[in-house]
Design a protein around this nucleic acid. Structure first.
Lengths: 219, 219
DNA sequence: CACTTGACAGTACAAGTGTTTGCTTTATAA
DNA sequence: TTATAAAGCAAACACTTGTACTGTCAAGTG
């Protein structure tokens, strides 16, 4: 079984391993590193396949040199641009019962900073994004569990289909739902497709922000 | 005679040599390379000065590893990762029906890199973490929806309570559940507390990895 | 069928390489 | 000067690691 570039399964495997190893450690693996981690029974098999990889110019090798494998173009990698770090402040806790904290009230500079994937809070709209820690299981219907981080963008209105944090005035409760304005009523649709929507009037709700992301850390 | 950063002439010399060697060859010099080219009379002198360079954090070394010298920043440049950002490769798609891709099989260096919160894939355990894009609504009971990113750590076993990606052999299906070994059976508990667990035998399941995080981007 | 070829296994060896030990020299300060 | 530490020297040692050699096995091929 060969892949597109004429490498066997094992050769692809070895090549991927070398790249990964090199990225992590900063130096190339020894033949025995490859053998052990890839569960290959003999060093000679690795040597055999390395020779083929060298012939096909997927790797470079210097004879007899320990860990002398080099990847073509390795020097080019040095030119890659550093990624930008994005952080947002963790401003508090969100539960079903209590209202959200007002971002304006909190000294953002003092809050714990959370690192988030770049595309969740990028561009000119980055300002105004903050995080809240979810407490309790009340947001199960939004596919959000106890302990999750919810990323919110401060905004008082919403377009149809956007997930928003809304406060229902007559229940005095906060929920996360998809927002749909339908005539003179509002449909609040749980993210969980198996669950039923809530209908209410625009006067009964207050949009507290838009949900731009959810981060669940089980590590 | 000491230079500005407290290095002796010989240490400066060695450091410069390592940089040059690295730039030309793509891998680090052996102690004897340094010794010969710098006309140092003994390998122990080189070892002695390398130890000092390591203490002053001018170089990094992995004990006992041939040519295991690394330059600080080299790792980052090579992988294009700035210090505070963590990225993991996006290796494919996860659905209910199809098996997970084998991380070893994929050319990790070629995969799209996803930026993740630092604490999800940090420290020495960073290796082996990869991301899969969820397709379909089959993982609603794990509070995971279509389009979410699941971060997995490659591991063949699990402790009780950990969320794992398991393959049920008789269904030929992959699900994400909390794992509990109870006597001679296994309980697979959905993350959604309102849903019922599955019971099966250890022989019927294959642990494909541990779920370390979930990222949902609604931006 | 005999013959070849590609791929892998197991083992052994030799070269590559980091480390240690004991000793000598040089520098520095009391 | 003498004591002390730093730096260098030389050789031996032990682990690391690339390579070679001998087989095995399955899939062609004439």
């Amino acid at each position: 079984m060969r892949s597109a570039d004429g490498l066997s399964h094992r050769q692809e495997q070895i090549l991927a391993y070398i790249r990964k190893f090199w990225g992590e450690k900063g130096y190339a693996p020894a033949i025995r590193d490859i053998q052990k981690d890839l569960h290959i029974s003999s060093t000679s098999v690795v040597a055999y396949n390395l020779k083929i990889l060298e012939q096909k110019e997927k790797i470079l090798r210097d004879d007899k040199i320990s860990r002398g494998i080099t990847l073509p173009g390795a020097l080019l990698l040095n030119t890659s641009l550093p990624a930008t770090v994005h952080t947002v402040p963790l401003l508090g806790v969100i539960t079903a019962g209590s209202p959200l904290p007002d971002p304006e009230d909190i000294a953002v500079a003092d809050a714990e900073q959370i690192e988030v994937p770049a595309d969740m809070a990028d561009g000119e709209q980055m300002s105004g994004v903050y995080a809240l820690r979810v407490r309790g299981h009340s947001m199960i219907d939004a596919l959000i569990d106890d302990g999750d981080l919810v990323l919110l963008r401060n905004q008082p209105t919403a377009d149809n289909g956007q997930m928003v944090a809304v406060r229902l005035l007559d229940d005095n409760a906060v929920t996360l739902k998809k927002f749909y304005h339908e005539g003179d009523r509002v449909r609040l649709q749980p993210a969980n497709v198996t669950m039923e929507p809530i209908y209410t009037s625009p006067e009964n709700l207050q949009i507290q922000g838009r949900v731009v992301g959810v981060i669940r850390n089980l590590g």
